[in-house]
Design a protein around this nucleic acid. Structure first.
Lengths: 95, 95
DNA sequence: ATAAACAAGTTTATAAAATAAACCAAATAA
DNA sequence: TTATTTGGTTTATTTTATAAACTTGTTTAT
């Protein structure tokens, strides 16, 4: 089958992350953790995948001495998300 | 993460099959093969999964002496598809 | 000052899923 | 009658997702 749905976005956790980031300037790791109810390991893994594809940028700093990971969607990520939304619609018909 | 997207439908090939069946009374194996461009093996496997979940019914007969597999979406399948579409929309925002 | 508990992630190992490749039975063609 | 084609199914491999274990450093209690 020729794939029209970006496999990177066609995963619930990654899609949720992107869906949050697209309307939230940027988000901290723990915020995403709370919103998604994912495990830390899984969240970390999926953030890494999105970052490797340059769909998001990840900034590492410190807050109160603790590591702080902040994520932000990129222009490429926004494009991919929009394309994904468009492609999906062709499957859903009028719904 | 709590899953809100039915994993059975959240796969491009199965989604495509369902998307075709929902607007086509019924479809023959070769029709689905042609529309999806999947391999026969993969198509067979995914049809089996959808059938096991009672999302579709599968009828086996013969046409011109050759085996003929016909698929039809079920009421349960329609419901699942509609729910999936609704759930997805929460991820896509206004798009 | 040391040890135990906690924070914020990352890495690794396992389970599950998707897919391609190989196979099969029956029909037709050479 | 052997070879090829049709219409699939089954098996084996690869990929992906996920949970469990680990790491690095911090804070709290002793």
């Amino acid at each position: 089958m020729y794939k029209s749905l970006d496999p990177l976005l066609h995963n619930e956790l990654r899609l949720k992350i992107m869906s949050l980031l697209i309307s939230i300037e940027s988000a901290e790791f723990n915020f995403l953790l709370d919103e998604t109810k994912a495990t830390r390991g899984n969240l970390s893994a999926q953030i890494t995948k999105l970052a490797k594809a340059d769909y998001i940028t990840v900034n590492k700093s410190f807050k109160n001495n603790y590591p702080l990971t902040t994520c932000k969607i990129s222009a490429k990520g926004i494009d991919a998300f929009e394309s994904y939304a468009t492609a999906l619609k062709t499957y859903l018909g009028n719904r």
